[in-house]
Design a protein around this nucleic acid. Structure first.
Lengths: 205, 205
DNA sequence: TGCCAAATACCCGATTCTTGGTATTTACCC
DNA sequence: GGGTAAATACCAAGAATCGGGTATTTGGCA
């Protein structure tokens, strides 16, 4: 089996490569610390399995995964991430990844995931499974902001006033106020700080 | 040489242990994924060198380092971190650490750092050295917030209004406004959002 | 003791945000 | 073609913040 590891932390990469190479069922392990490098690697030799970080600089692990899955649907994908916020998991799973392992897990868990996924199965850490179950039970959390509202939120985050946002989007300040109002309601926040925290936690900015 | 690795990402820990154990000059490698565990390890057998992450949950790598350095001044310390923000570097160096290596570096760099520090030297990644030089040239960036101002800042981020903050701190709303004004000036921000970003980047909240 | 930074406090006009409405126009789905 | 969500827009009053000030008290250090 040919595996490609993608993570911007070279040190982690080196250590993992070492670990995986010592496994009998692993034939080759390649590594890449940038998305560009990873894509070149993939072009020259398609891996059976990719183990990728989510928070890669620039393009990000999600976009990378989408690209790979689009080009090589047969390639398996496991996310290896330090993040366990629901919104990240949601994003990750939208790429049809076969697995999601937390970095805080022991390396044995990653090996287990690799074996499982290589065998055609799926593997998700306990914490991730809990999130999945939670979402199954409370799907109503899903109604998030509209695109326009997200746009307004982003501009708020870029430190523009309502008036400036209106000018930028070619809408009146009144409309901006309405969007802002709706955003507060949807996010159940009522202060700017609360809103900012929500936005950060939910990766909306 | 006895080395203790501290990081909340078990997978990184496993990989690094593997790497270090293959070095001839390394006798023992212990690992700990929590500060509590690390402290227990240290008590039972004092390591010659500790390689620690900075962003460890709960207590944090800085506080851990301070504790260790206070108890065992002869133990060397290298920070292994994904962070290269000046304020983090500043905090880290306040613990008298002997080294600071970025996680994005190759593992060879860590090995180099370990050898250098074990031999009584210091080792800092190029990026870190750049920050040191920058600070040498522009030391005036140092005047940060006073304790009181930090207190006010924290309450702002707990979503209290100026009036509420005044009540909490038993000072008038006017005084809160003054603090707030001074905070804006010192941080060179003039919107709440900018302030929030500053606070997050500088770990003030 | 004398100096200085920090913390305290107040003034106040201008600006911005908040929050309760209502209403029209688009765009898309069934 | 009718229904619905999204985006647009406006009103208006009250709350809060912003950004100029000035001034006193406190605590620590030289």
């Amino acid at each position: 089996m040919k595996i490609l590891l993608v993570d911007d932390h070279q040190i982690l990469l080196d250590g993992l490569k070492f670990l995986l190479q010592n496994q009998s069922f692993v034939k080759q392990v390649h590594v890449a610390s940038t998305v560009e490098h990873a894509l070149i690697q993939i072009q020259s030799e398609v891996p059976d399995l990719i183990v990728s970080d989510i928070s890669i600089p620039e393009i990000g692990g999600i976009a990378f995964a989408q690209k790979v899955k689009a080009l090589f649907p047969q390639t398996k994908l496991i996310f290896l991430s330090m993040h366990e916020e629901p919104y990240r998991v949601k994003e990750a799973l939208s790429t049809n990844a076969e697995g999601y392992v937390l970095k805080k897990a022991a390396h044995e868990e990653l090996l287990k995931a690799v074996r499982e996924v290589a065998g055609g199965g799926l593997y998700f850490s306990t914490e991730i499974q809990k999130i999945l179950i939670q979402r199954m039970r409370f799907p109503e959390d899903e109604r998030i902001l509209t695109d326009r509202e997200k746009e307004v939120l982003r501009l708020i985050f870029e430190e523009y006033s309502n008036k400036e946002i209106g000018e930028k989007l070619h809408i009146s300040e009144r409309t901006v106020e309405t969007h802002r109002k709706n955003i507060y309601q949807k996010t159940k926040t009522n202060t700017l700080v609360g809103l900012l925290k929500f936005a950060l936690e939910n990766n909306l900015v």
